[in-house]
């Protein structure tokens, strides 16, 4: 078990960077630095992290970073990882993208890198909408959520990207949350040991886009897990295993009522009781599918 106090004190995210108050990506990036230290190399497509770096010729991120066109992050990371390996560099190349750069415009590139089993770690910093352009819906925006392009609340479901990536038969898949840094760092450390394509889907509540108090990022992130809305799991070589943090919420009775999660966020202000009912059903379905898959894949 990793303890935070044992990890490096070196600052991989510098003070005064350009993130908004309470930014979950800032947290996530810090944890990546803490896990991989000086071996980290980041490849970043368009998104909030393009801005968080601050203004050139300076940077607020104390890790080598290659910015790249929106759709191209996993492919560029694959090329970079190949070159660094050929040059004998001990590097961990992380393709750090948002929901757009992973699930939407970046999806072909992500799927390609996964199928080729390129030796990179792709992290989806999932803030559930296009936040950098000012809160527009993505395929990872959840049902019912307000965005500037779903003013009546999104009518469609959130795409199940982790399971889509699991279906690519890659060596490692995990979900994580900025609310549970130890779990996330452990998964990063595990990914580091595995050769081939690794995928980590990091749930990242955004105070600006979700309309909550910037002091509440961690609390909102934890509630997503505790309500069962976001399920932490891993899949090593296809075997799905619910993470210990999420395990208690397999049982409905242990889940915090969903309303506790929704009421903190302005984006769910206008959801109706019928919509909430549908959300509950969706949570149950997601759990049922994942538990069944855990059972089935335990035999492979």
């Amino acid at each position: 078990m990793i303890r935070l106090q044992d990890l490096t004190k070196k600052k991989y995210l510098l003070p005064g960077n350009a993130a908004c108050p309470g930014c979950p990506l800032n947290m996530g990036l810090r944890y990546v630095g803490m896990a991989f230290e000086d071996k980290t190399v980041l490849v970043v497509p368009a998104g909030c992290t393009s801005v968080i770096q601050g203004l050139m010729p300076k940077t607020g991120i104390n890790m080598p970073l290659l910015n790249i066109a929106f759709a191209a992050s996993p492919a560029a990371a694959a090329g970079l990882a190949t070159a660094l390996a050929l040059r004998g560099k001990d590097a961990i190349v992380v393709s750090w993208a948002g929901d757009g750069g992973s699930a939407d415009i970046g999806f072909a590139s992500l799927s390609g890198a996964a199928e080729r089993n390129d030796n990179i770690i792709h992290i989806v910093a999932d803030n559930e909408a296009y936040m950098n352009t000012g809160i527009q819906r993505s395929s990872l925006t959840p049902f019912g959520a307000w965005t500037t392009t779903t003013v009546k609340g999104k009518q469609e479901q959130k795409k199940d990207l982790p399971l889509i990536m699991w279906a690519h038969k890659v060596p490692y898949i995990a979900t994580a949350s900025v609310g549970y840094p130890i779990d996330f760092i452990e998964k990063l450390k595990k990914a580091q040991q595995i050769k081939g394509f690794k995928y980590i889907h990091l749930h990242a509540p955004c105070p600006v886009g979700w309309r909550f108090d910037p002091g509440m990022t961690v609390e909102v992130a934890k509630l997503a897990v505790q309500t069962g809305m976001w399920i932490l799991f891993e899949a090593e070589n296809g075997k799905i295993r619910i993470s210990p943090t999420s395990r208690p919420y397999a049982n409905k009775k242990n889940r915090t009522p969903l309303e506790e999660y929704l009421k903190l966020q302005g984006r769910f202000e206008k959801v109706t009781p019928e919509m909430i009912k549908k959300m509950y059903e969706e949570i149950d379905n997601n759990w049922r599918i994942l538990l069944e898959l855990e059972e089935i894949t335990s035999k492979i």
Binding site: D38, V41, Q53, M56, T59, I61, P64, L65, K89, A91
Partner: peptide
């Protein structure tokens, strides 16, 4: 772009 050389290529 390589480990130990914390530059950023292409920020604003």
């Amino acid at each position: 772009i390589e480990p130990g050389n914390p530059i950023s290529m292409g920020n604003l």
